[in-house]
């Protein structure tokens, strides 16, 4: 195996032009797929942050005292998907309403009592499922003693969830298609390289090489090509990211949203995947060259 790696490494350096073309192809492929991944990741972050903005309001009965209220808060905080619970008294809500309607406060002048009940404003954690979990959560909250009614933006939520699910599904299909297309391109590029070396493979066969002697260095070369291409593609993406994102932030286009680069685990997965693609490309191509 050590000899195979040594020969594979020597050949990798020996055919600079051929391997350069292959590395560029893989680099561009990795660039495209990781750029798409970068977009998806940040779009997902954006969706998450929107989801965190969703509020479920639990209105309390007038009889609910502070001790009972604290018990309700503790119960709600223990439910999964709950990011936080804030108490909003009826008076605070009334003041907020007056501030919201601004110059039209005259509308409220006829009221002798504050009609707004005390309420608990429940914010959600980003990982909660939309339409499936929020109604369940609302039902559980309705069942608590001291909770009069529960409200949330059901229609908005359903629409948001529809968009989010469509986005996720489309992303997965697109990633699958791009990956398949890239796999074919890389496999064919490696096949072209092997065609260029077909005479060398034939000669090596004629002097007595068995399949293993020919295959293993080529597999190693495929893995090296994948590694070099993967690193080059990610470096290219990082350079593009570093060059554009600060400019967009400076121009005020990313005020409400922090764009981040791919996390290390994903970078590692991309590099390992491109190495795997290099190996698979070799594996698929070599079989037909071992007939000689």
């Amino acid at each position: 195996m050590r000899d195979a790696i040594r020969r594979g490494f020597a050949d990798f350096l020996n055919y600079k032009a051929l391997h350069g073309i292959c590395v560029i192809t893989i680099a561009l492929a990795v660039f495209v797929i990781s750029a798409f991944g970068l977009f998806l990741q940040n779009a997902n972050d954006l969706m998450r942050s929107w989801k965190e903005e969703i509020r479920v309001i639990a209105y309390l009965t007038p009889e609910t005292g502070p001790a009972e209220r604290e018990g309700i808060i503790a119960d709600i905080e223990s439910y999964s998907g709950v990011g936080g619970v804030a108490y909003v008294s009826g008076d605070e809500a009334f003041e907020w309403l007056k501030a919201e309607i601004g110059s039209q406060t005259a509308l409220l002048e006829g009221l002798t009592d504050n009609p707004l009940p005390d309420a608990l404003e429940v914010s959600l954690s980003g990982d909660i499922d939309g339409t499936a979990s929020i109604p369940d959560l609302a039902d559980k909250m309705s069942g608590l003693k001291g909770v009069d009614d529960v409200e949330y933006a059901r229609q908005w939520l359903e629409r948001f969830d529809g968009i989010y699910n469509l986005f996720r599904l489309t992303s997965m299909v697109l990633i699958g298609l791009i990956f398949a297309a890239i796999m074919m391109i890389v496999a064919n590029t490696i096949r072209l390289i092997l065609y260029q070396r077909i005479e060398e493979i034939k000669i090596t066969r004629v002097i007595g090489a068995d399949d293993t002697f020919i295959k293993y260095p080529l597999y190693f070369e495929g893995i090296m090509l994948g590694l070099a291409g993967g690193l080059a593609g990610l470096l290219l993406l990082y350079a593009a990211f570093s060059a554009t994102v600060p400019q967009l932030s400076a121009a005020g286009l990313l005020v409400y949203f922090q764009v981040r680069f791919l996390p290390w685990p994903l970078v590692l997965i991309l590099i390992l995947s491109s190495m795997a693609v290099g190996w698979i490309g070799c594996y698929l191509s070599i079989r037909r060259f071992l007939k000689f």
């Binding site: 000899d3 020969r7 055919y15 060398e200 090596t204 002097i207 007595g208 002697f213």
Partner: peptide, 16 residues
């Protein structure tokens, strides 16, 4: 093999 030196062309037989 054009991409290998004279030495490597001959030595390949022994490696094989």
């Amino acid at each position: 093999i054009p991409g290998k030196s004279v030495f490597d062309n001959v030595g390949l037989v022994l490696e094989v």
